[in-house]
Computed example of a mutant assay.
Amino acid sequence: MKSSESPVALVPGGEVAPGERIDFGRPMVVAFGRRIDVRVVVIAGIVTLLALVCGFLGLLLGKFALTPTEVFQGLFGVADKRIVNTVVGEWRAPRILAGIVLGAGLGVSGAVFQSLTRNPLGSPDIIGFSTGAYTGGIVTIILFGTSFVSTAFGAILGGILTALLVYVLTWKGGVQGFRLIIVGIALTAMLNAFNTWLIMRSDLDLAMAAATWGAGTLNGMGWSTILPATVAVIVLGLGCGVFARDLGTLELGDDTAKALGVRNEPVRAALILIAVALVAVVTAAAGPIAFVALAAPQIGRRIAKSQGTSLLMAAAVGGLLLVAADLIAQHGMALTNQLLVWLGVIGVDTADDIQFPVGVVTVCIGGVYLIWLLIHEARKAP
């Protein structure tokens, strides 16, 4: 690993003098043949640390309150009380891991689609791939029950078929980002109507299961679900990383990318397939969780002040957003009531610890973010 930051000596004509390195304006290192932005790595590490702090709070809080010592003992299964090992190791830890890992997967998927479309609105939940995965999951639940394996297979198949349909409808001598978004929005509306019809026509128990899963929730998350999902997210995330350099080049435009040796359509098709699979895995595990894929890449880009969309920053911010949203969903009502008691607004905290699906919280947060994003983009327009 070596630093690639050094003063630049320009010769007449603007070219770099022989033997001189390019100054990128910020610390850079070269590792494994690739330039790595030190600022992005450091900030991504800080964001990941914040996600772990939120996760630790999630392990502490609840109706069965624990001390930090009990949490660490429960993680390793050596607590004196058996109930502590069960609460921490079997109930809370899988949920925390799910929030971080699945959020990271959504962040990476959103970064890929926003880079391909060169549009901050180009996320899988806007384009329709999340809805397609949800449709596949609903069909599988109605036909084969609520098994994770069958639901995962149906969600992946539904997401891929939706991506193929959007790709075909968008194709016109290539895939244009704006056309991809418009076609995706139209297909999302059609799939939402179809999903509603499926739920209304199905058996009551299956309809309730599909509706609960469709809200997007980490409730009841266990190791049997999150471990295979974690492996899948890591493998698919590394697959996106393989194409990270080409993805950054595609942001410069198809003509520039082709001139730099990128095989535009094969690379774009591979990235779409991998990113759709990421969304489908998350959907199969926790249901369609909205707006994390939309917000995480842009928030990460602004925090790191990077020129392009960083997959690493998107993953870190996505993990933080989802685990923090789940913390609010589980304990937000109880903490709010305790705060009101402390401020003297109410006398006694008699409210139950009401828990919401995490998808409800991400929709609320994402709605505010989407309004801000639309206003911001409108002001930038000439």
Rank of each mutant, 00 (worst) to 15 (best):
L273S: 07
I181H: 04
A280T: 05
G300S: 09
S150L: 13
I160C: 01
P228S: 05
N85E: 08
L61Y: 10
P266E: 06
C240N: 13
T48M: 12
S115G: 15
Y134A: 15
V317I: 15
V183K: 00
A290R: 05
M333A: 15
L10M: 14
P94E: 03
A351M: 12
V88L: 06
L60A: 03
T135F: 15
R34W: 01
L370S: 10
I226G: 01
L106Q: 08
L121S: 03
A229Y: 03
V317P: 11
A215R: 15
V276L: 05
I160K: 00
R179A: 15
A280G: 04
V40I: 15
I346H: 01
P7Q: 07
A229Q: 02
G216E: 11
T151Q: 09
T67A: 06
T217A: 14
V231Y: 05
C240Q: 13
N192T: 11
V262S: 07
T146K: 03
L311H: 09
R34N: 05
G366Q: 08
G132T: 06
E70Y: 04
V175M: 08
G19A: 12
A210D: 07
F32S: 08
K380E: 10
M28R: 12
G347K: 14
R34A: 09
S6F: 02
L102V: 05
T256G: 04
V53Y: 02
Y167W: 15
V149W: 14
T131E: 06
A280R: 03
I43C: 01
L143N: 03
V341E: 15
T212R: 13
F72Y: 05
A215I: 01
M28H: 14
G14V: 05
G105H: 12
V292R: 05
F24N: 14
N195Y: 02
I36F: 14
A293T: 09
T188H: 09
L327S: 12
A270C: 12
V233K: 04
T225A: 04
L312K: 06
I226E: 01
V84F: 09
G154T: 06
F144P: 02
P27Y: 07
M221W: 00
G89S: 04
A155I: 00
L327A: 13
N264G: 02
V175F: 02
V242C: 07
G159E: 08
W372K: 00
T67D: 08
T151R: 08
A186W: 00
I371F: 15
G136K: 11
I375A: 13
L204G: 03
S4H: 09
S6P: 00
L52P: 03
A232F: 04
A329R: 09
V292C: 07
L260E: 12
A111C: 11
R118Y: 06
